[in-house]
Design a protein around this nucleic acid. Structure first.
Lengths: 344, 344
DNA sequence: TAATTCTAGGCAATCGATTGCTTTTTTTAA
DNA sequence: TTAAAAAAAGCAATCGATTGCCTAGAATTA
């Protein structure tokens, strides 16, 4: 059992025959302390290996320089990059990040939110989990005076700052690209429709079909195919149809697109000649598959930076001006070999 | 400007005409409170939307149920998986995780350590950054009564709990496998030798050569080739030698191995027939390259679980028994096509 | 019924840093 | 030389929860 007594400002004050308040002032802004005593205090603190107790300071001041981030999983490229972007900015400002994973579970998400709230973080940045019921826990955050920023997967109905990709526009662009390459029967692998990002991607797909006056064929739209395995299964089903698709837009993820590619390989179907494939997210593997996979870059690092900047803007403006602000980060279509029917 | 007053136990106490201490007891262990008042307090707390202020509680009790994790980057498979493993255990125990990235910078690592220490986390779990000078900051942690567990990249000279892979053994295994497949001139891409994991991998490589009485050829050992680009550059250099290698063990990472593969493709060199390749880490892309890449699975999730378990064991035993404990997690060689010279 | 033990609840100190206010000391101005 | 102003330092309350100790009343026992 360790019973280490840490050095406090009282210890320093006692040693120097000063008052703790002077020590505190010397350590912080340096106001109301003479230069000489200030230097003495700093030196002594260093010698005694003094470390501020942030907990005590936070209790007194009521705020701590910490931002909580909740994502479904940190080991997905997109989220890892957003976090990297957030961190770039927060690090500069001297803020700490607390990163939590909801593992796509609503229960866990609620727990994370509560923990962060109990710790009085200044801001919570969240991308909601796929499995959710309601947003009471998020509304609660605001009631406690904690800033809330949603990104990517956002709850539209909630009145918060939001940073999102223009999913619809880029999805439309992707499908238009496929159509102009000569694909006619384009299937869609769609994600859980309770998440708006997936609704938007579907809307983009539909808009592209409409623009080119192509029919919407219900049997070509497959639900919830967002892992490699599910993507593969959906593809098997699609290719077994009487009139199979000649292209698949895996709007859920690149993992799903990978499943499509694997099945095509297996069945000896030529990509992109007989089947076009477009994924989503620009996972690193999409450029090393054979053929490389056309996908969508979400500019995730930029998104992260934007999110963090938004918080500090609000903070520095001193007002909650930006409450219901929506920022769009433009994603980009990355055209690779898997959709180049014409040029082959 | 928000000036939200949060509900405290005093508010609850006042409302119910009770003493805050009773409220606290009711909310926690429930001792010394009658069942009826306890239920009343719980109900009222719920109604008033009371949330405990962990900061205040932590200040009083002197400990918080938080564990800090510092890794070079969270967006590397290995680290993300270790974190996932840690979280699985800590979540069960009701502990929180604070995740920080050092970005391979010593400065940043020190800042992370200090921040976590100031927040009085109960334990710091760290994999040190590649760029480092000394370990004063880590020694300091212990002086402050915070448990310290190192994993993967550890500072040998520091007296802490450590959880590592048996890098040497599995590296030897990998090189032996390549030799038995008929490769004779095996090159090594080595990592920064100030990190013991890379020294160990090199030792395994040397041990394998020795076992098979193969000569150690200095010009086949390349330093610091641990990104895709550096791996590619090193490969170009190696293949331009008068006597080029017939296999490359990219002991630094799979990314490096990917660079090797790309250069081989470019130069029209057949893998595995003319050149064998073995990477390290079992990144997901290694199974979808063409050919798939032989690599080493580090059992990272298991490692994470082990780390967390180690902490709780120490905690529950109540003693610092396990101080200088070393746990080895057995990695596995994953044989794929890139080294199968014989079977082709 | 009286003596004893339990229970429920109250009181107040504590954790360590911060900060408004007051007092003392120093400096400047008259 | 003295009065006024400014700087430096001290005092004490505060943030919110926890906890050792104390007491009044209830329950138990003799």
């Amino acid at each position: 059992m360790k019973k280490l007594k840490r050095v406090t400002i009282y210890d320093i004050a006692e040693k120097l025959n000063l008052n703790p308040s002077s020590v505190s002032r010397a350590l912080n802004n340096g106001s109301n302390v003479s230069l000489s005593t200030r230097e003495l205090i700093l030196k002594t603190a260093e010698e005694m290996n003094y470390k501020v107790n942030s907990i005590a300071a936070n209790l007194r001041t009521g705020h701590n320089q910490t931002i909580g981030v909740i994502v479904p999983r940190i080991n997905q490229n997109f989220f890892a990059n957003v976090i990297a972007g957030i961190e770039e900015v927060t690090y500069e400002k001297g803020y700490n990040l607390v990163i939590c994973q909801s593992n796509e579970s609503a229960d866990r998400e609620i727990k994370c939110v509560n923990t962060l709230a109990n710790q009085h973080v200044s801001c919570i940045i969240i991308s909601v989990s796929a499995d959710f019921e309601d947003y009471a826990h998020l509304e609660n955050i605001r009631k406690q005076g904690i800033s809330l920023i949603q990104f990517d997967r956002v709850a539209d109905e909630l009145d918060t700052m939001k940073v999102v990709n223009d999913n619809e526009k880029v999805s439309m662009e992707a499908v238009c690209h496929m159509i102009s390459e000569g694909y006619q029967r384009i299937a869609l692998l769609e994600g859980p429709q309770n998440l708006s990002i997936f609704r938007q991607r579907k809307a983009g797909y539909l808009a592209a079909l409409k623009k080119y006056k192509l029919p919407v064929i219900p049997e070509l739209i497959m639900e919830n195919a967002w892992t490699t395995e599910l993507g593969a299964a959906a593809t098997k089903h699609l290719l077994a149809l009487a009139e199979p698709p000649d292209a698949i837009f895996a709007s859920t993820s690149d993992f799903s697109a990978l499943g499509v590619l694997e099945v095509a390989d297996e069945l000896g179907i030529q990509v992109p000649q007989q089947l076009g494939i477009c994924g989503y997210s620009n996972e690193s593997f999409t450029q090393i598959t054979n053929p490389s996979i056309t996908t969508i870059e979400q500019n995730s690092v930029l998104m992260g930076k934007t999110i963090a900047q938004l918080y500090f803007d609000e903070l520095e403006s001193g007002t909650s001006v930006a409450q219901n602000k929506l920022v769009n980060i433009q994603p980009e279509l990355i055209i690779r070999n898997s959709t180049l029917k014409l040029s082959r």
